[in-house]
Design a binder for these strands. Structure first.
Lengths: 351, 351
DNA sequence: TTGTAAGCGTTATCAA
DNA sequence: TTGATAACGCTTACAA
């Protein structure tokens, strides 16, 4: 682990100046003989360019940061999976920040852009505060936000359309004949929580369904919260026949409780999740879920950022990724269930 | 996004030298008056230290890389979740590499250590080749390997004990009265594949169970591969009564096929997975799984690396994390099923 | 206590 | 085509 060779070491060994070494290394026009000597020396020494020095000079780090609320959340993971290869292909490294959805941490990340350890940032904040907006305006590097920001915010922005997403799900449930459709939501002071709650109310109104506050339960976005909320719901509204859950984790908690309560899914109660994570396909019954295009959003965000990094200026862009309803067993029953590679064989003698 | 202020800007504004600015910023002894002026100037200018310049001088980047085979794999994710906070607490940023289990990419990462963009590396290679070992020996920064390396390799190493893990599972199945226990393995040229396959054979031998090659099926480590392997197995060995799967994804594929084939789990066939990922708790029936301590291994690796970064030398250390069998419904039946927060209530009138 | 100046490893300008 | 030299923004002897 001795001190690595630098262009100085190479220059000495090859008997040329450091400028020549640099030129060769960067593929600039050089005499063949010089090039040969330099390459030979570099090879022998096992030379590797120092990225830090390079960055200092070039003012480019070839690093991009991705700040997510929670490494454990599959929706962010889906974004990460798409972001990573796009950046890699463009020669950027990925610096990962987990902010635990703490606003202060997110502000920190925005602030730290001033340290210039990355060329840009992709961030997916759960809540967008005034301070967020101020910091965004003052950001020292290009930022792409995954999630919705207020109209007029001058920042590249990739948004999901949870409004339409909820709508798709409610329509689906309605079509299946469900009329007592509950909503198990996350905190309404979060961007997604607020949007999904509003969309639910609107959809119910449009379908002419009676509004009933007891049908709306609120907890956090995790499985035990979903379970608690649904346990509570079943007591208050025993005749509920469908659950619109604000994400898949909540929906899993719902399935746990329904199963324990002896309610059949989907016969007695149909369940829809959101985000269409891996868990949706893994659960049993598999979970009908609204894909908000996490993967697509991640990809779009990465591409938007790369454009900024390469092209430079221009007006902020807003990309909206359309939602998609993925129907599985938790609403459609077993006919729709199971991964594609399984050919069902049941006692009744299905195919 | 104008050019940020540097210590020069501050020095000018405060009417002191850049050395004084640096001293104040680093908390070195300074006259009160100077400190005040510098801080004032820095505040007004919104100064933030340039991390790159700092790194060049100090030869420390305060970045650590984590190279995993596949961002999508929950086992690596579990590691990541533990590594992240440990590093963050110690003031390190996390650079994420996804190598897609391609050896060349892993070698690349090892090589790129020479660029000195990180102070250290945590790597979890699926296969360990000769080249890996050579590169490890020549690595220009401290490396911690998660996974097993050959005896004598001079590198910090955190290993799982899949041998004991498989043993726990097989003993469990045997205790439950299962005698036709199959193994659905991943590729045997991978480190985990080889270890798990060997452990399976040994465990069967020790229990005095008849060895039957038809009971061993091999595919890749993913869900469709598991499904394919089990479909094949059911044809060859119809009386199989237990499946030891080399990971949870394979086990999920197994559940798909068993369900489609009308075999009850666990009554007809008991299923055990490995890695105890989120998916194990999400599936239905929930999956008994051998936890190889992914989380603990991640944490241990991060701590080992930090010690190296702070303390320096010393002999390479090997940490082995003990496995743990997490019993769920896929072997123990519904009595053991469901998350803790659910109190089961069934028609028969359980608690 | 403070300022001057060297140096970290590059890239890039300007003469030669 | 090449070499000397000046940055990039910071930390740190060494002198004052």
């Amino acid at each position: 682990m001795a001190d690595g060779p630098t262009i100085n070491t190479i220059a000495e060994r090859a008997g040329v100046s450091i400028a020549s070494v640099s030129r060769v290394l960067n593929g600039l026009p050089t005499r063949q003989e010089t090039e040969r000597k330099v390459m030979a020396a570099a090879d022998e020494l096992g030379y590797v360019r120092n990225a830090v020095a390079r960055s200092l000079k070039s003012r480019r780090t070839h690093q991009v940061a991705f700040a997510m609320a929670d490494v454990g959340n599959p929706a962010y993971l889906a974004m990460l999976r798409q972001i990573q290869p796009v950046l890699k292909a463009a020669g950027y490294r990925l610096v990962l920040h987990s902010t635990d959805a703490v606003a202060a941490d997110e502000i920190d990340v925005l602030h730290s852009l001033g340290e210039r350890y990355v060329d840009g940032l992709i961030m997916s904040p759960l809540r967008v505060t005034e301070t967020h907006l101020e910091m965004l305006a003052a950001a020292r590097a290009p930022v792409v936000i995954i999630g919705s920001v207020p109209e007029g915010t001058r920042v590249d922005n990739v948004r999901a359309d949870s409004h339409t997403g909820v709508r798709l799900a409610i329509d689906h449930l309605h079509t299946l004949g469900r009329r007592r459709i509950a909503m198990i939501n996350g905190p309404v002071d979060t961007v997604p929580g607020a949007a999904r709650g509003a969309a639910y109310r609107e959809a119910l109104g449009d379908l002419g369904l009676r509004h009933d506050e007891a049908l709306v339960r609120i907890g956090d976005f995790y499985r035990p919260d979903g379970a608690r909320a649904v346990a509570d719901l079943l007591e208050r509204v025993p005749d509920v026949d469908a659950l619109m859950c604000a994400n898949d984790l909540i929906a899993l908690g719902a399935l746990d409780v329904l199963r324990a309560a002896g309610r059949r899914v989907p016969e007695d109660v149909a369940v829809v999740g959101m985000d269409d994570t891996d868990l949706a396909a893994a659960s049993w019954p598999s979970l009908t879920s609204v894909s908000l295009g996490s993967a697509e959003r991640g990809k779009a965000a990465a591409e938007l950022l790369l454009e900024r990094l390469q092209g430079g200026g221009g007006e902020p862009r807003v990309v909206t990724v359309p939602p998609r309803l993925v129907v599985r067993a938790s609403t459609a029953g077993f006919e729709a269930a199971g991964p594609e590679y399984v050919h069902h064989h049941r006692e009744e003698g299905g195919k």
